[in-house]
């Protein structure tokens, strides 16, 4: 049956108010708590974004974003990360239907795409540092490396987390605790995408407008 039709057929007066049911189930509590964590993480990123905004023109005679950023490389990075979000979604579907092989496959592709993203980002950083555009060169570069690097660190953490979770699936199977953690991982991974969209826009797109 169509979900919308099913919802229409419920008599509102037969529904128990959610306040009458007491504590929410663990899955809801864990997911909600993790959402709150993600919000706090986004607040931290917003502080870094604000600092970047303040310091973006403080190049101290050094190179500017327009001189440094390579649009092609960043476009590939973005594609990797957005695709990995899609495969992460496929992994979540596989988990919901308890398909182990599909879960591993989804995780593997997600991991590889994430690693690819990191690889490109590190190459970009190494190239900049080699050309003298180090974070010590100017306040603008300090803010750039911190903001983008902080996102990169999150991606690194996410990759480690994903690897540990696959070990958990292999050893412990689809237990409720493991499923809740995988659910949180998916939230985390999608949130990193959202942050990257902001980053891509504010740093790389706006950075090359002269």
């Amino acid at each position: 049956m169509n979900v919308a039709v099913a919802v229409d057929e419920i008599q509102p007066e037969t529904l128990i108010s959610y306040t009458e049911t007491g504590p929410a189930p663990k899955r809801v509590v864990v997911g909600f708590g993790f959402w709150i964590f993600l919000l706090s993480d986004i607040v931290m990123f917003s502080a870094l974004f604000a600092s970047y905004g303040v310091l973006v023109n403080a190049t101290a005679g050094g190179p500017t974003g327009a001189q440094l950023f390579n649009q092609v490389s960043v476009a590939i990075e973005t594609a990797c990360l957005l695709l990995s979000s899609y495969t992460c979604g496929l992994m979540s579907l596989a988990i919901n239907s308890r398909r182990r092989i599909a879960t591993y496959l989804g995780a593997l592709v997600t991991f590889v795409l994430g690693a690819l993203f990191l690889n490109l980002e590190i190459r970009e950083f190494v190239g900049m540092i080699a050309s003298g555009a180090t974070p010590q060169r100017s306040a603008f570069l300090s803010a750039f490396f911190t903001l983008v690097g902080c996102h990169g660190l999150h991606v690194t953490g996410g990759l480690i987390w994903l690897a540990v979770m696959m070990a958990q699936v292999a050893i412990k199977g689809f237990r409720p605790a493991v499923e809740r953690r995988l659910f949180c991982f998916a939230l985390f991974w999608h949130a990193l995408d959202i942050v990257w969209v902001g980053l891509f826009t504010v740093v790389y797109l706006m950075g090359v407008i002269v």
């Binding site: 310091l55 101290a60 974070p135 306040a139 570069l141 300090s142 911190t146």
Partner: peptide, 11 residues
């Protein structure tokens, strides 16, 4: 880094 330093454009 130069976030808050007196030189390098810090604030």
């Amino acid at each position: 880094f130069h976030f808050f330093s007196v030189d390098g454009g810090g604030n």
